[in-house]
């Protein structure tokens, strides 16, 4: 009995400590004087690794998600004789929910896990300690570019995902199922509001991007420097990111619908 209570207490303190370390890491990366000359090329490299290389999976899944939402939506709407409303259905569900959430989940799987594994391996092979030996701050050289790269990539990926998904829906709804193209776009334009739907969706994606890349960087930085440790850190990175995305999505949606 006593040992269980002790274990629970230790678990609680450990969790709190991890949270504190994660907060400190984020604080130390964000609140530092940026070194533009050295930091910018490194950040651009990370935008390439995390953003540009994720484009393929984002575009393909965006296309198919738009197509499948249009197909499902068309058959349900047609039952009520409201197939003309397919445009609003797809545009609202993609810009508000599917775009930010699915992009963030894919981003966590594609880029977040890679960042964790990379940093974890750097730690296991003692590259981070050797940097410190050479008076190079690993936070500035390794962590900060990855964090900013992910932070900038996520909203851009979401915008591309949204557009591709809506064009996928256009492909299915108009080109295949034979809806009127004018009605498709004009109904969409009357019911989608730029600020309430598009901008709020992008705001969500900015928050998700920061959370995903923060978790990824932290899990890599604090990984146990063994092969099993890196495997565990990568798994935790994806699992925690996904849970955080879905939980935060609910909170953010509630805030946005409540008008802040």
């Amino acid at each position: 009995m006593m040992t269980h209570i002790t274990a629970l207490g230790r678990w609680g303190i450990d969790t709190l400590e991890q949270l504190g370390k994660a907060g400190l890491l984020l604080f130390r990366v964000i609140f530092r004087v940026p070194n533009v000359k050295k930091g910018l090329p490194l950040t651009l490299q990370q935008v390439y690794a995390e953003g540009v290389l994720s484009l393929l999976i984002i575009v393909v899944s965006g296309l198919f998600i738009g197509m499948v939402v249009a197909l499902q939506g068309y058959h349900t709407l047609a039952k009520f004789g409201a197939a003309q409303q397919l445009g609003p259905l797809v545009a609202l569900s993609v810009t508000r929910e599917l775009g930010p959430v699915v992009t963030a989940l894919l981003f966590a799987g594609r880029a977040g896990s890679a960042v964790t594994a990379e940093i974890g391996l750097m730690k296991a092979t003692e590259q981070l300690s050797s940097m410190e030996m050479m008076a190079v701050d690993p936070l500035q050289r390794v962590i900060s570019p990855r964090l900013w790269g992910g932070f900038f990539s996520m909203p851009l990926l979401t915008m591309i995902f949204n557009t591709v998904a809506i064009y996928g829906a256009y492909l299915v709804g108009v080109k295949w199922l034979g809806l009127d193209a004018g009605a498709f776009w004009s109904n969409m334009q009357t019911s989608v509001d730029f600020h309430a739907d598009v901008i709020n969706g992008i705001l969500k994606s900015i928050v998700f991007g920061l959370v995903v890349i923060w978790i990824a960087v932290f899990q890599g930085y604090e990984a146990t420097p063994t092969s099993a440790g890196i495997a565990g850190a990568t798994t935790r990175s994806v699992v925690y990111s996904s849970l955080a995305i879905l939980g935060l999505d609910f909170v953010l949606t509630a805030m946005m619908i409540g008008g802040w």
Binding site: P41, L44, Q45, V47, Y48, G51, V52, L55, A91, T95, P155, L156, L157, M159, I160, N162, T163, V164, I166, W185, S186, M188, Q189, T190, V192, D193, F194, D197, V198, I202
Partner: peptide, 29 residues
């Protein structure tokens, strides 16, 4: 570095195009 930077530039351009499409074509702004 040069290639990477131009790829990132293209990526940024694509995203801006996407945002413009979202604004004018989708939300009718």
């Amino acid at each position: 570095q040069r290639t990477i930077e131009s790829f990132v530039g293209l990526f940024l351009l694509a995203a801006i195009m996407a945002l413009l499409l979202l604004a004018f074509k989708v939300s009718g702004l």
